[in-house]
Design a protein around this nucleic acid. Structure first.
Lengths: 233, 233
DNA sequence: CTTTGTAATTGATAAAACGCAATTTGAAAA
DNA sequence: TTTTCAAATTGCGTTTTATCAATTACAAAG
């Protein structure tokens, strides 16, 4: 029994050690002794576009490390409209409020196929008490949430509709490792920027006609980032 | 030497124990053993209206527990305009990004006389490693930052200018223990809601003429919250 | 009590964004 | 290939908000 548990931990450690984005994840700098403290399995899962990880109000037993893909966090207002309050990409924690034993605060829907590691939160509290490495990782994750929120308020929820769209495009481009990047539906753009679908569409159309933006397949685009930046100076 | 340190810790513990808002502060449920781990003094400070605790980019050696008062966190945009991204009130941590060894991310200016406890961040890391109580408090503080940011995006940065103002007034009223609450300058309202000073002024003027809002002395007002709520249903 | 300077208000107009109603486009299914 | 259907685009009138320019109000200083 004990042997099995330790064996399990070792296996977990080896799997996490060989993780392709090891330096980005929550367990980035844990050592073997840290992994020995893990007793519940960490599962790798894939969620496809339009699937969701959880709804607002769901009991939060897991936090997810996002290995790849793109996820939107959505709040529904009283009148049924939706407001997207954050985007999560590689390395982010999905459902971080679980660490505070809160139910999930958002509807977390996949925009671009998401590969995640599902981590039981019971593990985190115990390990972070013994590992200053995990403690520091947690602070870094929370801190990033705060910085992302500031960005959302300052750049995506202020200024003219065009400035917001441009900031969003630059942001999406920065999240992508390739030249092309994820281009949301106009409806999602509206929900991210607090503008209407039509206004988002008009601005995208204008950028296309000006040759600053090229729309490729579904939800993919290329942009001349220099020109974009000049539009918001 | 050692004796002195312990004595200091005890004094600290006794001071924190008798804190009027003990249940609200970061060290809420620390015990004597926890306080023994504190070696740098925690200082109580007062900042008056218009004074600031730190500027964006300052090296962050302290985090502040706000005992009373109101503080705005400001980001300055490239073009010199300012955007207020959060308000902090009783029980909040000011400069929480210090926990991630980041420089301060905002200009933190006092709106209403602030009584704070200044906590050296070197203490926090060491204590949180030994005290699950402090660990849980930290998670709760970070979690509140995320929830506050969501609120700022969903309620104060979406919808019509009037809806934003009304949500702001309801929020300010909820922060106050008295009937009257802090009414920001129209310029600050604009910076909080991403609207112009004039638009904020016009909406406040209308609410006053409709008898829903009564402006008292400087930066104080009374509102009929029921009517306010009906305006945003 | 008067002066003084900043903040708030108000009016007029321009600009931006919305809302609604067609079209048009384009990807997936048949 | 054709069909189908949702998403995107576009036109246009309306509404909201921004902008600019006076005034007015008011609190602090003299």
């Amino acid at each position: 029994m004990k042997i099995e548990v330790i064996d399990e931990a070792w296996q977990q450690a080896r799997r996490c050690e060989s993780c392709g984005i090891r330096e980005l994840v929550l367990f980035a700098d844990l050592n073997k002794a840290d992994f020995d403290l893990i007793h519940h399995p960490i599962t790798e899962l894939e969620f496809k576009t339009n699937e969701y990880l959880f709804k607002a109000g769901d009991q939060a037993d897991y936090v997810y490390t996002l290995r790849s893909g793109l996820i939107k966090l959505v709040k529904f207002t009283d009148d049924g409209r939706q407001r997207i309050v954050r985007l999560l990409s590689q390395g982010d924690l999905v459902g971080i409020e679980a660490l505070d034993n809160q139910p999930y605060a958002h509807y977390a829907e996949v925009l671009d196929t998401a590969l995640v590691c599902r981590i039981p939160i019971v593990e985190i509290e115990s390990i972070s008490q013994r590992s200053p490495r995990l403690y520091r990782q947690l602070m870094a994750r929370w801190s990033k949430v705060a910085m992302d929120a500031d960005f959302w308020i300052e750049e995506l929820s202020s200024g003219s509709a065009q400035a917001r769209v441009v900031h969003l495009l630059l942001y999406l481009a920065s999240l992508s490792k390739k030249d092309e990047f994820y281009l949301p539906s106009r409806e999602d753009m509206g929900a991210m920027l607090a503008i209407t679908t039509e206004t988002a569409s008009r601005i995208i159309a204008r950028l296309r006609s000006e040759g600053i933006l090229r729309v490729l397949g579904t939800n993919q685009a290329l942009a001349d980032e220099r020109s974009l930046r000049s539009l918001v100076q």
